[in-house]
Design a protein around this nucleic acid. Structure first.
Lengths: 372, 372
DNA sequence: GAGTTCAAGTTGTTATGACAGCTTAGCCCA
DNA sequence: TGGGCTAAGCTGTCATAACAACTTGAACTC
């Protein structure tokens, strides 16, 4: 005489499970609230809650206090599709190889990468980025790799809009290269990038070892927090040489502004520049050439990123190499791991990077020149 | 801000977990009955039951109606075994909860954690650590979690010896909390820890917002690179307040040295100290008390780690909380992932941490009644 | 138009109380 | 002594009640 009276909460579990797997509720859909279920099953809230807890442990649903209960995105048979939301793709040079590596690593696992074009000349970039974001949401991608917008006065607003949209759609996000929150804060997302503080230290240390004593760090306005980290490393390296940075050794401005550059040269009398990235360094070099200042003889220069043309400039540029391939691989892994373990806390995942010494720092150990 | 109110049932889960993983209850043992727990925790049966359910889902216990609750014997067959190589285990306070979390997370996957004792009073620590390392190698563990030695003049040599040994044995390593290389360098191993630069920034920023204008960072000699990162954050925060740190604002010395502390007070005239960790802060507070300096009225103090006794000092200590549980979980997943993908580059995996404001910083907005 | 406040709705946590079903140990009786 | 029975103790299930914490969107203010 098997007791046919099944626990009431198991009945609820069973029926909801059926509704979910049969497709009545799809991924991301909101289930009826506890109050609704209490009524429709004429039971107590505790019982409903217990059923929900079971479903949660089964990994079928996801609950959010204040918001509701949602069907979790199922681990599809094999392949996921991920969206790339990278406003500067094609311009910054470093994201292209990163995406390449992601596509390659993704193919191994049977995943697809959607490339969105945000570099069309028509329309403004803000609009394009938002539209691409909405497109990805409509396509119900499994996750999105996002490189926050920078170098725009209203970057915070745009980034917040995007993140809010993705949050509402409950799409997991992995940040690439940088966070969108102002520094001491931390977003709730994983971030994959390089250790910018270490990079700043390495490149500054290199210049100091080659005889520099008065260095200026140059960055354009509205830069990302990555630049702050590079500045921190810059300061730290100076400190190890017992050099205390003057007030204006961190200069925020345009490298094309010949007047401002001239003034900086005259007031601070630096013997070297650390530029926030290679693009800034390249533009500064052109300005210095116009001003008749010789690189590296009078002023040494270094940058970050190791973009393709860094070694092809009039004076090959010393810089820090971004391990783009590795960043891409790790980013894919991070996304998959995040989908498998949603409860893990947000992680900053930093990779190491290496110095590429060229002539602009006056190095005697580099390959390109030997002016011993 | 600091979310000190933990659910009661989670506390029960945590304590029972600890009792199980520490071996107080062995496999097959019967745990106290619900009624017993209701009494000893002075709570309701529902709460106890909820805690039990959690432990059941974690796979730690097995319940039989009418009989009792029993510790499940774990399946040693399929899991890996990992070694914990943590020289200061039991002293630093922060590694204990980290290991606890690792043991729990590992148990879910059927993995075993070997705890090595390096705190015996006989023999020196160096010898013990090396012996433990050799023991793990002889046991052919699948991986080792290593917290490099610090605070010893020959720490570099010891760490190198250990790493070389593990390298020869081809045993994967995940570093906990800190790297063993001097700063700008980077080891070839994954590292799991907190974002010390951000932590340094947060705590310094907090003191500055409460009116401090002249701060000293105090650390003992031979500290790990984590302290350098905290100093970098310290400097950065000062910078955002347009305060340029004086030469001696970074003070390396013993907090017990009353003469040196007196001299620092007289020459720099600080209105606050940021100490490299809670232990340093606690010792400094005692010295200041001897010198008749009032905390926080004359000098504000803050530390790092949020060790257990931080809130129990004469003047409760403002500090930065280390998310030990999260570090442990992430460490286990990192190790498993590393074994699955040996080709991925080395990663620094940093977690975020939060400020715990108590009286030593002179904050009036805090609630120091956190410790029950 | 952007930020703030506020109210309604949702889940999270805990207390109290009750009964049902299962297991074990010990007692009683043959 | 062996077998069955029973009482005690355990977990499983469910109802009612209340407050806390969080989210969202709409109304509101600057």
């Amino acid at each position: 005489m098997s007791n046919n009276v099944k626990p009431k909460y198991q009945k609820i579990v069973f029926e909801l499970q059926k509704s979910i797997t049969s497709g009545e509720y799809k991924a991301g859909d909101r289930l009826p609230s506890e109050a609704d279920l209490v009524e429709s099953y004429s039971t107590s809230r505790l019982t409903v809650q217990r059923a929900m807890k079971e479903l949660q442990h089964l990994g079928l649903i996801e609950r959010r206090a204040g918001s509701g209960t949602f069907v979790r995105r199922m681990d599809q048979a094999k392949g996921h599709s991920f969206g790339l939301l990278i406003p500067g793709l094609g311009e910054t040079e470093i994201f292209e190889p990163i995406c390449q590596a992601m596509a390659c690593a993704g193919r191994v696992g049977g995943h697809a990468l959607l490339w969105g074009d945000t570099t069309q000349t028509t329309g403004n970039r803000e609009q394009q980025t938002k539209e691409l974001c909405e497109y990805y949401i409509s396509q119900a991608v499994s996750g999105i790799f996002f490189a926050p917008v920078e170098l725009m006065p209203n970057k915070d607003e745009i980034n917040r809009w995007i993140i809010n949209s993705l949050d509402k759609a409950r799409i997991p996000v992995v940040l690439l290269d940088r966070c969108f929150s102002p520094y001491p804060q931390r977003s709730r997302y994983d971030l994959v990038g390089i250790d910018n503080r270490r990079a700043g230290f390495i490149v500054t240390d290199h210049l100091l070892r080659h005889g520099c004593e008065r260095l200026v760090f140059l960055a354009v306005p509205y830069s990302a927090p990555t630049v702050d980290a590079r500045i921190a490393g810059f300061r730290e390296a100076l400190e190890t040489f017992s050099i205390s940075a003057g007030k204006d050794w961190i200069h925020i401005g345009e490298p094309d502004d010949a007047v401002a550059v001239r003034e900086t040269l005259d007031t601070i009398r630096p013997d070297g520049f650390v530029c926030a990235n290679d693009m800034t360094a390249a533009r500064l070099m052109r300005t210095l050439e116009q001003l008749g200042v010789a690189v590296p003889d009078q002023i040494r220069i270094a940058g970050f990123d190791d973009v393709k043309y860094a070694g092809l400039l009039g004076v090959p540029l010393t810089t820090v190499h971004q391990p783009c391939r590795e960043i891409g691989e790790v980013a894919i892994w991070t996304m998959l791991d995040r989908m498998a373990h949603p409860a893990l806390p947000a992680r900053d995942i930093l990779l190491s990077c290496s110095l590429v010494a060229r002539r602009s720092c006056g190095s005697h150990t580099c390959h390109e020149s030997s002016t011993s």
